[in-house]
Design a protein around this nucleic acid. Structure first.
Lengths: 135, 135
DNA sequence: ATAAAGGCTGACATCAGTGTCAGGGTCAAG
DNA sequence: CTTGACCCTGACACTGATGTCAGCCTTTAT
């Protein structure tokens, strides 16, 4: 299986596959002409890599347990859980921070809108609209 | 006011002040020796920049309305609200995505723990512990 | 005069995965 | 033999604010 086929089979770009290899995530053997050849099993490995990348793990973290996970069940690999735990803590920190920014942003937008309405009221202060007080 | 004093007064590094100037956020006049000189009012400008950066805005976005905001009230500057709106949408997208990752992560951790417990049970399957069924 | 403190520019590094391009082999079909 | 599809390596770009360093100039105090 050549790199183009692996790319086709996994939906991962050739560029990324070469990068994964460079990071020690996947292995290839070279043909005489220098072309990479992959075992069909590599497809599963790449799928696993996609999964872990989607969890926000780095290639370095993935490299730390991928071999074990591929050979055994994930639960057998003691390295996995600590990585998950650290990632979860990081994600939660980020969520808190984003929520804080979100709150600040909403507050400012509210204040801004209020201030604009006040300015408009000043401009149309001449014509007193009785309908305003009915609602 | 020289750059070291402005840095001292605002808590912003000299490096960052020079960067802000390069991005068109603050202005300085040069003395004959090439040293930057700042108006005392620049302190307020830098404080505003800090505030907007803390909202997650980029220097480019800030540059789009900072002059107006400094000269008038924020509510007077039509450029501000659209930037806030876009930023809010972006933040909320990020929060959703992080929550999705968080959920996936928690799910995997739960499954992992369950699987590990199952494995432990198999290992100690020989000694049948009657206390297990009491709880 | 000299040393210390502060200012100046320019440039590289950071995080990390991916796109993209240049320049060059390889192979199969016409 | 040529064309097109596929592969190779190496390298730069990107996102964006900041740290840091080198190399040099200015001012002030000793």
């Amino acid at each position: 299986m050549k790199i183009g086929q692996l790319s086709e089979a996994t939906g991962v770009s050739i560029r990324s596959l070469r990068y994964y290899e460079q990071q020690g995530l996947i292995a290839s053997i070279r043909q005489a002409n220098g072309y990479r050849t992959y075992s069909p099993l590599t497809v599963e490995t790449v799928e696993a890599i996609k999964l872990y990348l989607n969890l926000g793990l780095t290639t370095e973290q993935i490299a730390g347990f991928l071999t074990c996970v591929i050979q055994n069940k994930e639960a057998f690999c003691a390295e996995v859980m600590p990585v998950y735990e650290r990632k979860l803590a990081e994600i939660e920190r980020q969520i808190v921070q984003l929520n804080q920014i979100r709150t600040n942003l909403v507050d400012r937008m509210t204040a801004l809108t209020a201030e604009q309405n006040r300015t408009i009221c000043e401009e149309c202060g001449a014509n007193d609209d009785p309908k305003r007080s009915q609602s």
